[in-house]
Nucleic acid binder design. Structure first.
Lengths: 189, 189
DNA sequence: CACCGGATGTTAGCGACTAACATTTCATGG
DNA sequence: CCATGAAATGTTAGTCGCTAACATCCGGTG
């Protein structure tokens, strides 16, 4: 879909309506039809802007950045440590613009199992990207997949926790803390 | 549903028909209707035996065992290490009866993203069970959730890899190898 | 103002899943 | 051996997510 003024306006209206409904009556209890009505459009139009219902809340544009950051770490480290440092480099200093809607979305995802399933699909892609990079540098495929899976699981857990954390806590802190637990025997970085 | 002779027969017929169809034409391309016809029943009856289409392949009866095994590890260990040892104790010597259908199922799950999403829902429950146990013994909730998530992600990755591994490889070997990567700086257990 | 491309609507349909009610099967006990 | 009652199955009708083909409308350009 080409991006025009109209496109952006409708997309924003859908997003607002969806977030409101999700927060008021829960994700599963909200129908695409209801969202469409609230946004003044047709269900069909909803799907022209978002491929699925959950895409309103779940978006993962980070894959290539993360894979690159992992690849940028010293290639002689073990896969787990390389992935860990890569994720720290890519996400360690994210400042999510203190955007409230980001937290609203994460909080919603944290509450609904069906949404977490959608997240895991996106995570799968990222995991694959990281593992491919590690294998390209000579890592064993299974070791690479395991390292990517473990580090991403820890990171995702931190992200979900951030959704319902007190407002002072930053996402960066939580991610650093999550990955620190996977560090080799008591190293601070 | 009460378990009678009939119940078991029908369930077995559904399972056979479903596995065959899934392997021949793929999971997503297979309809519950097709499964029902092949099993000589009605779609309605299918759902009386399996709550969802994916339940034919994805079942997780391990939660309590695993949580108990984690709780049985020394309480003074850090959460990650405690979880790791618990999983090793619970899964480290599984001998899946060399049952072929187990591998068939895992292989199918490994191929379809929608099925992996279903797995992640089951994993969520296990993760929660483990984390609860750790928190009950005084662990920090976030640390506990992260430890459980990372260890389970590694284990799940090993499980999926087993689905398409050469037939000599045992699931035990892969799980041990996966969790070994999360061990503190070069310890063999 | 006429035009044209992109955004929206309409209609029709598939597949997963559910509820309410009718029907058949099968293991009992008389 | 057969009647009986409960459990399993079928029927029907519906909701919701999602898709395709085609018609329509709106908005900016010339």
């Amino acid at each position: 879909m080409v991006v025009t003024t109209r496109t952006l306006r409708t997309r924003a209206r859908i997003l607002d309506a969806a977030l409101d409904l999700f927060e008021h009556q829960g994700y599963d209890a909200t129908t695409v039809n209801q969202i469409a009505v609230a946004a003044g459009i047709t269900p069909m139009t909803f799907f022209r802007h978002f491929p699925t219902k959950d895409a309103v809340l779940v978006t993962d544009p980070y894959d290539p950045l993360i894979a690159d950051a992992v690849g940028a770490q010293p290639a002689d480290l073990p896969p787990l440590e390389r992935t860990r440092l890569g994720l720290l480099a890519a996400l360690g200093d994210i400042t999510p613009t203190e955007d409230t809607t980001a937290r609203r979305r994460v909080a919603l995802v944290a509450q609904s199992p069906s949404l977490r399933a959608a997240v895991s699909v996106g995570t799968d892609a990222t995991q694959q990207a990281i593992a491919d990079r590690l294998v390209a540098d000579g890592a064993d495929p299974l070791d690479a997949a395991i390292a990517a899976a473990a580090c991403l699981a820890a990171t995702t857990t931190a992200l979900l926790a951030w959704g319902s954390a007190p407002s002072g806590v930053t996402l960066t802190d939580l991610v650093r803390r999550a990955l620190a637990q996977l560090a080799p025997a008591g190293a601070t970085p």
